[in-house]
């Protein structure tokens, strides 16, 4: 699984530049749709970095879950709430931007000095590489069995919670008969029945 050193360095450079550029685009671009697609670029670049780290299973899981599920979910959410409105400018917004940039730069400087000054105990053993799937499976069903089952319960809870939160609310009972009078119309809030036609009118 070990490529030559030069190929590793070059592909690491390309992938990290792609990833950081796309991440800056996600944060700074005006259009939220472009941000969502660039987020997919970030995820794919990180999957490539995982391949450089001898973790093919996690790279495949990253592509499947993040690009295939999370990014598509975000695109659907953008489609559902895509209201073209100009945000009201906040007074003294530049103070917040400057303060945040200073804090982020400070955190990055702190982390960099910590990373570069710590003597890491680099192990010289050969990486698991292609056998990583077997090792991960052994961990899941021996010493990480309880977190594994808890994660499945948490996913079930998130599924039910997302359905309950995103479900449309019904009208209360006194309005029910009035809404029932109009045949072929579900007793829902009427403004939610045409959520897409409003986007063109509100500009």
């Amino acid at each position: 699984m070990n490529l030559a050193e030069g190929v590793q360095i070059v592909s690491f450079g390309i992938l990290s530049v792609m990833m950081l550029g796309a991440a800056i685009g996600v944060v700074l671009l005006d259009s939220i749709v472009y941000s969502a697609f660039l987020l997919g670029g970030v995820f794919i670049s990180i999957a490539g970095l995982y391949l450089l780290l001898n973790a093919d299973f996690i790279a495949a899981a990253q592509v499947l879950i993040y690009v295939g599920a999370v990014n598509v979910l975000i695109l659907f959410a953008i489609m559902l709430v895509n209201k073209r409105q100009e945000f009201q400018p906040v007074p003294r917004a530049w103070i917040r931007k400057a303060a945040t940039a200073a804090v982020c730069g400070g955190i990055f400087a702190l982390l960099s000095t910590m990373v570069l000054s710590t003597p890491w105990a680099i192990s010289s053993a050969t990486p698991a590489g292609d056998a990583s799937v077997v090792v991960i499976g052994l961990h899941f069903f021996s010493d990480f069995l309880l977190p594994f089952e808890l994660a499945s319960i948490l996913l079930l809870m998130a599924l039910i919670g997302a359905v309950v939160l995103a479900r449309r609310e019904f009208l209360p009972d006194d309005d029910f008969e009035k809404a029932q009078a109009e045949a072929l119309k579900l007793p829902e809030r009427p403004r939610e029945l045409v959520p897409s036609g409003r986007n063109e009118t509100v500009k």
């Binding site: 999370v70 680099i122 961990h139």
Partner: peptide, 27 residues
């Protein structure tokens, strides 16, 4: 990969973080 290449516990944690992140994104 660099500190614990034989018993790859970091990859296990990454799998858990990915699962939690998917749940977090949905909610």
């Amino acid at each position: 990969n660099y500190l614990d290449p034989q018993t790859i516990k970091g990859q296990i944690f990454t799998v858990f973080v990915i699962a939690i992140a998917a749940a977090e994104a949905a909610v």
